[in-house]
Each structure stands twice: as C-alpha cells, then as structure tokens.
Computed example of a mutant assay.
Amino acid sequence: MLALDLFVNGLIIGLYYALMAVGLSMIFGILKVVNFAHGEFYMVGAYTYTLISLNLGVPPWLALPTAALAGAAIGWLTERWLMRPLYTGYGSWGLMKDEYAVVVTFGLSLLMINLFDKIIGPYPMRGPSLWDVSRLRIGPFMMSGQKVVTAVLAVVLLVGLALFIKRSLWGRQIQAVAQNRLGASIAGIDTGRASSIVFMASGVLAAIAGALLAPVINPAPDVGIFPAVKSYVIVVIGGMGSIPGSILAALLLGVLESFAAVYLSYDYRDTYGLVLLILILMFRPQGLFGERSREV
C-alpha cells in the first residue's frame, strides 16, 4: 500500500512539473532557444493569484483565470518585444541567435526578480487553497483537496494543449513553423503569430503551475528559480522540444523523487533528478523522445 501511495503522489508531483516544463519545451521546439525567464512566468502567476485573492477578496477559483491571463500577457510581451528580433534581423546586432536569447531572457529574469522585490517586497506570502479540504479519501488513497484539484486541472490542461496542437489550425501552423520556419513562411503562415501563441501558452501553463503551488511554495521574488531548474532538467531528459517527452520525463521524475525520498533520503530529494539527467546524458544524450543529430 505504501508503494501505491508513493506512486500516486509521485504522479501528482509530476503533473506539477509537466505544467512548467511543457511550455519551456514548446518554446525550444519552435525557436530552438531556451527561455531563461521561464521561472518568472511561474512567479507572475503565483503572485497574481495570491495578491488578487488576499488583497481584493476575489475567490480563488476566479483568481486562477486572472493568473492565467497574466501569464499569457507576460508571454506575449516577451515574444513581441524581446524575442521577435530572433527572426527579424538579429544578425545586424552582431549577436548570434543563441547568444541573443541567453542575454535577453536572462536579463529579463533578473529585471523581474528585482522589480517584484522592490514593488511587492522580499517576504513570501501564502496563497489560498482552491479546495480547502485537508483530507479526502478517493478509494484507498488519502489526499488533500488541493492535490486533487491540481491533478484534475493539470490533466485537463495537458490534454487540451495536445488537442490544440494536433487538431486546431493554429496548432498545425505551430507544428509547421517548428519543422521549418522559412518553409512555413513561404507557405503563407504567419510565423510571428505562431511564436506569440507558443509564448502565450507557455506563460499560461507556467502561471497556472505557480498559482496551484502558491499554497505550498509561498510566492516570493525568487520563487521561480527552482521550478525553472526542474523544468530545464525535464526538458533535456524528455528530449529537447518534445512535448510528449517532457510530460513523460516530468511524471518519471515525480515518481522517482517520491520513492527515493522515502527509501533513500528526503534530504537529497532534489538531487535525484540531476542524477537521472547525468545518466540520460551518458547513455541517451538526445533524451527519451529526442532524435540523434546527424552529421552532414
């Protein structure tokens, strides 16, 4: 029974991780760059949800969509103002594509952390739970109401994202841009709009993850750093740019941490993912769902 409890708890933790990592994976898949400000999308969602709930008295269920809107807004602004030069003449600035992305996203991360520190303050604040039920029995399992809500919302969002990418017109355009940006542009696809949608979706997922974890990991200016590191690990393990790979890697990492924390040591819980990353890089460097690069 303990093993089954640990497995279910690990899956729920993995769903938290998946909400963060999938957006990062989408950005890499379409632009082939890493967004070092991704953790701050998480922070924006956590702060928006908490401040609106506590200061304005808005019910948590209504504050959650506002966190998603804030995440979409910061994603759109990041793409429109900072990332658009990647494919509209970045070369004239004397910077390579990867160098430019690292500089601007890392700079945005530092700016947002310090901005929130000065405006809101350095002290963490506890967010309200969506479902304030301490213990809920579901079959043989005992879980908190927040975990149940998180699991359901995460599954709905991830399934909805998969259907959006596979079935919708915008989703097919995003796939085309990810495969060949120049070819998609020649075919008449608005590549700038596709990039904006990807950044907005990434911001929404990260912001919702921040809001859902606000009752557990209290929002603070630097609260997004650690979830972002987890996301980078997951994206590499799953395969750079692979959404299914990121989801599977997130679930595997959640289960691994759940079992290892009990059977090995809880003190080293956050290092088990790094060990798994090292093993993946040693024996399958392209990741679980990645493709091995071919030399020409």
Rank of each mutant, 00 (worst) to 15 (best):
Y263C: 06
L115I: 04
S53W: 12
Y42C: 06
L212T: 06
V104T: 02
R80Q: 03
L86M: 06
W61K: 02
P285R: 09
M26L: 15
L157I: 13
V155K: 10
L95I: 13
Q146S: 13
I30H: 03
V8I: 14
F283A: 13
D222W: 13
M200K: 04
A68E: 04
Y90R: 12
R284P: 12
V296K: 03
R126A: 10
F283P: 00
L182E: 15
A151P: 00
Y42D: 05
P124H: 10
I208K: 01
M96R: 08
T48P: 00
V34H: 01
K32N: 10
P215L: 07
G287T: 02
A67S: 11
V223C: 12
L11Y: 03
A207Y: 02
F7C: 09
P60M: 14
Q179N: 10
R172P: 00
R80F: 06
I225W: 04
A162Y: 14
G57N: 05
S185K: 07
A209W: 08
E79P: 00
S92L: 07
L69W: 07
V104L: 03
K118R: 12
L77T: 01
T191F: 08
I120L: 08
R84H: 04
I74Q: 09
G121N: 07
F199R: 01
M96P: 01
R294W: 05
V235A: 08
I119N: 01
L256I: 15
